[in-house]
Amino acid sequence: MKGAPVPEVMDAERVTRTLTRIAHEVIERNRGLDELALVGIRTRGVPIARRLAGALKEIGGHDVPTGVLDITLYRDDLMRNAVGPQPVIRKTEIPFSIDDRRILLVDDVLYTGRTIRAALDALIDFGRPRSIQLVVLVDRGHRELPIKADYVGKNLPTSLRQSVQVRLQETDGIDQVVIEGES
């Protein structure tokens, strides 16, 4: 990390509390958990989805199946990537049928909306879910597509020069959300 100390907008406790709150909202809005399934978008949507599954089990007493989605092959910038090498593809693992399920699509940061567009296309290639709802830990604004989250952990107004980093125990060894760069 470069420059002055970066502002931490969420710490570990805050992340945990936020996910618990979202789990409550999910239960409130979806009568019964038996049709629900979680799908985390690689990379950091995956641990968030797993934690939500844990919270839903604790609060609602129901095991919600959880899958992993890699959207690389659906990206709209795939073959026009001027910044670096071809993104590495990793496995998509959705070990259940998504037909007629209510899917909770989970990601860490909602920004332009392009990742979610790709994820929706990818999901629909797996079947016809009854509905898809979007869960994000942070919404930082600056949408380029008409996409909106159903559950938001924290709304975080940012400038385009900033970048929002979500770090999680499972992938980065620490739970925190920080903003990098000048406002």
């Binding site: 950091r44 670096g84 332009t112 990742t115 970048s163």
Partner: peptide
């Protein structure tokens, strides 16, 4: 995953090479 995030925000790559 944040498609438009700068390069350092890309997920870590498990193997050595990232391209041919």
């Amino acid at each position: 995953m944040n498609v438009d995030a700068p390069a350092q925000a890309r997920p870590p790559v498990p193997s050595g090479a990232k391209r041919l």
